[in-house]
Design a protein around this nucleic acid. Structure first.
Lengths: 193, 193
DNA sequence: CTCATTGTAGACCGATCTGTATACTCGACC
DNA sequence: GGTCGAGTATACAGATCGGTCTACAATGAG
């Protein structure tokens, strides 16, 4: 019912697309408050006027940044889940895709969790995107395990959620190597019992 | 060997103590980059000159903020673990203390994880404190389960770490109620098998 | 041809940022 | 009595912040 209730509010012209790409990289690597609009404009090869013509405010750039990552993550995950042959396969695939996603472009952990650390106000338009993705992931886990254990689906979904979130944090802080793989093993142990 | 390798670098005069208390509250609630030294000084009822006389820089205030929270957390936990009667009791107590700690003064999740989202540079003096606490927690979990399963202690310690970190994130983002309690149950199930 | 859209170039605004300086008060200690 | 540490009050500096402005160029559609 709400797979894409965070519609693109801003039409992405070529310059806007470059700006969003630069903003996304900078926001993720350095943090939202640490990156100014002048830097975004310079890195994107775009003038500040274009930035404000397209996005209207820095806050809106932040919203687009998170909405964009959310959208790409869900699409990436959905494509991989499409070819899964069983609920167990699907759950383990989530952890596989997470590991690949982290290895590829998220060495500093989950962008939603990181953004949440900088956004205190629940009324902030980005707040919905952040908690929305997490609630969606919880629902996904729960739905995936329901065929395996209809009565314990809620509980199992939450357990998988904890393992997954914990692994993302452990990966980002480099607490120990192979956090996603370890979480995957624990998920498998949890479901094959 | 390194329970307090983050010594207090700054002597805490009364005014410095007030400043650190105000800075801690503000940093945690609004984020580090979002809080200026003028605000800290005003909230603490202290002049900016006193701030810089005591701490020298905002960065040092951040370091003291994290070191202080780390110290208090470890002391709080150690006091409660002292009276535990078994390894299982100890592990479950960690989750209990975490829940109480979160309920009491950490509605926005782990301050170390949140700070990490704003500090990109591993050379930053706060980085050691952040990863230090997490490595200490991992070591604690591992040591606690060693009597229960000497051969699986490393693996079990990591599993408990994932559950615990995941619960802190889930709590901070309010993904579902009772995250710490659920993690505690999962930890119990993991160890009583 | 005209006109709206998209863009660049760059100056500018007021506010806020971290950090420093000067001048003064107060209390403790020798 | 004199000195020193800790503190207040306040002004200031230089940079950067988010955001706005004017002027102009290119492009494509009616």
């Amino acid at each position: 019912m709400s797979s894409t209730d965070t519609p693109r509010r801003v039409p992405l012209t070529p310059a806007a697309r470059r700006a969003l790409a630069a903003a996304g990289r900078l926001f993720y690597e350095r943090g939202i408050h640490a990156v100014g609009v002048d830097l975004i404009a310079a890195e994107a090869g775009v003038t500040k006027k274009t930035l404000y013509d397209r996005f209207g405010s820095k806050e809106q750039i932040v919203v687009e940044y998170l909405a964009d990552r959310d959208e790409r993550w869900r699409a990436c995950l959905a494509a991989r889940l499409d070819v899964c042959v069983s609920p167990l396969d699907s759950v383990l695939t989530v952890f596989d895709v997470s590991r690949e996603w982290m290895d590829a472009n998220s060495p500093r952990g989950c962008s939603m969790v990181n953004a949440h650390a900088e956004i205190d106000d629940p009324a902030h338009p980005a707040y919905t995107i952040i908690t929305g993705q997490k609630l969606w992931m919880l629902g996904l886990f729960t739905d995936l395990v329901r065929p395996l254990a209809p009565d314990a689906a809620e509980s199992l979904g939450r357990s998988l959620m904890l393992l997954h979130e914990g692994a993302l944090v452990a990966f980002g802080l480099r607490i120990f190597p192979g956090a996603l793989e370890h979480a995957r093993e624990q998920a498998a142990a949890l479901l094959t019992r």
